[in-house]
Simulated assay, not measured.
Amino acid sequence: MDSTVLIGIIVTLALLVVAFFTYRANSTSNDDKPIEPVKKEAPKAKENKKKEEKKEVPHKKITKEDTPLRVGAFKGHTGTVTSHAVSSDGKYAATSSEDRTIKIWEIKTLKESDIKSIHIPIPYDHATAICFTADSRHLLVVLKEAEQVVAFKILPKKDDKGKQYQEAHRFPLDKSHAGDVKQIAASTNSKFVVTMSDDTKFNVWTIKGALLHTVDTSSVKNNKFLITPDSRFIAVATWSSEVKLWEVLYDKEGNFKEVKKTMELFGHSSTIHSISVSADATKIATCSKDHSWKVYNINVKNNSPNIIFAHQGEKEGGYDHVGLSEDARTVATTQGNLLTFFRHNPGNNTVDSLDTVTLLNTPLGLEWNEDQLFVYFNQGITVFSNPNPGTKKKGKK
């Protein structure tokens, strides 16, 4: 091999060796240096403010351990609950279901390990609406397929067949409604019964089933109705943004004569979902899709009701249900699965939010019984105590 070529090869190898060790030395030097943390730019104050506004306060869940307001529950249905009722004497709570049963619970046994109840099967049919009569001795039941109203008498104890109820009478609805009857209610003076479906009419009957009067509300759809505790008014919440009231007129003997439209409750800007009434029949609460609830004074002259107090909510979706306590000092509402209690302060006419509970399921309705709120679900009832307890309804034990 030529000496010149050999020298060239040796020089090239030497240069490669020098380059390799120089690279290793630089790498080791860089590894020994501490790694400086990457500096992040501080978020802008405006962005921080937005994040704080979106942050929500966690709500309590319905569990016996962490919700002091929860008193107990009545459970047992396997199908969707279609209707509910509490007897006027505060003794019973009842629910009907698509599972073809009706359950009547004794309220006083709520906290006992063995809750007492009356089980009424409805073979080949189911109830769409129920209510107690004024004397709390009968439960009126609307049957979907049979299109009849059945009155079940509640017995003080089980008979020789093991039943604590018996059929007292029944009457046909005679196609008087265009759709399924969603509500039934009996007046406290036992003079009449009202039924209502999703159409635009409601019917007035005698307890035995004679049709007394039919009223067209002239609305697209009827949502809810109630009979005031003094049996004076029938109030209907419709698809429109007002509640319409009909006054019940009686003859000289005190029997039902007719109903006459007497006043309307204005103030909402959208559909009214639910209504409730105070025990003294002077105040009506409403809740609407417009994210608000209101309480009206209907004990007025010249049929000019006025709003006593109200609340405008911030959560989208509107209020689904409203319950006005018997003394009208507490308002309970639901929005989805949120149950909120509000307190009215008459002195300065302000409204405070007392407690909000995140329910495990979306409720189907609310009903007060003295200082307890009955919240109805698909499988039964959960009972809460009033965080703003007041006076008890006269006549209740």
Results as ranks from 00 to 15, higher is better:
Phe192Ile: 07
Lys111Gln: 09
Asp180Gly: 05
His77Ala: 04
Cys287Ser: 07
Thr101Arg: 10
Leu211Asp: 10
Lys75Ile: 07
Leu359Gly: 00
Thr4Tyr: 14
Asn349Ala: 11
Phe225His: 04
Leu155Asp: 14
Lys294Gly: 05
Lys315His: 09
Met263Ala: 08
Thr200Trp: 10
Phe341Asp: 06
Lys111Ala: 09
Asp99Val: 11
Ile227Trp: 01
Lys221Arg: 13
Phe20Cys: 09
His59Glu: 10
Lys294Trp: 01
Ser197Arg: 01
Val181Ser: 00
Lys257Pro: 02
Ala146Gly: 03
Glu145Trp: 01
Thr200His: 15
Val243Ala: 09
Ile308Leu: 15
Thr238Glu: 12
Val220Ser: 14
Ser219Met: 14
Pro34Val: 00
Lys163Ala: 13
Lys50Asn: 14
Pro123Trp: 01
Lys182Trp: 09
Ala14Thr: 15
Asp99Cys: 09
Thr78Ile: 08
Lys396Leu: 15
Arg343Lys: 15
Thr133Arg: 06
Thr286Phe: 05
Gly72Thr: 02
Val181Asn: 00
Ile275Phe: 04
Val322Thr: 05
Phe20Thr: 12
Thr95Gly: 08
Ile104Ser: 06
Ile207His: 12
Leu364Cys: 00
Pro123Ile: 01
Lys55Phe: 09
Ser190Tyr: 02
Lys289Pro: 00
Asp320Phe: 04
Glu247Pro: 07
Leu373Cys: 10
His126Gln: 12
Ser97Ile: 04
Asp31Asn: 13
Asp216Tyr: 05
Arg329Pro: 06
Glu167Leu: 06
Ser274Val: 03
Asp198Phe: 06
Phe152Leu: 09
Lys60Glu: 14
Pro34Thr: 00
Glu316Ala: 14
Ser288Asn: 08
Gln372Ile: 08
Gly390Asp: 11
Ile381Val: 08
Leu69Ile: 02
Gly395Pro: 03
Ala235Leu: 09
Cys287Asn: 06
Met196Leu: 04
Val57His: 03
Gly313Ala: 02
Asp125Ile: 01
Asp174Pro: 11
Val322Asp: 02
Ser83Pro: 03
Ile184Gln: 00
Val71Cys: 12
Thr206Gln: 06
Arg100Trp: 05
Val351Phe: 10
Ala129Pro: 02
Ser27Glu: 05
Leu245Phe: 15
Thr350Trp: 14
Gly380Asn: 00
Asp89Ser: 06
His311Ile: 09
Ala281Phe: 11
Ser240Leu: 11
Ile154Asp: 08
Trp368Arg: 08
Leu155Pro: 14
Lys40Tyr: 15
Glu98His: 11
Val259Gly: 04
Trp205Phe: 03
Ser187Asp: 02
Asn386Thr: 04
Ser87Met: 08
Ile307Arg: 12
Leu15Ala: 13
Lys260Pro: 00
Thr286Asp: 07
Trp246Val: 06
Glu147Asp: 07
Ala42Arg: 15
Ala332Ile: 05
Asn189Ile: 06
Phe152Cys: 11
Ile284Phe: 10
Leu366Cys: 05
Glu56Met: 10
Lys64Met: 07
Lys116Trp: 06
Lys54Gln: 12
Asn306Gly: 11
Ala279Lys: 07
Arg329Cys: 10
Gly395Arg: 04
Asp125Gln: 03
Gly267Ala: 05
Gly318Cys: 08
Ser97Tyr: 01
Asp159Trp: 05
Phe74Met: 04
Ala281Tyr: 07
Lys301Ala: 15
Arg170Glu: 10
Lys175Phe: 12
Arg24Met: 11
Leu6Ala: 15
Val220Phe: 14
Ala73Trp: 02
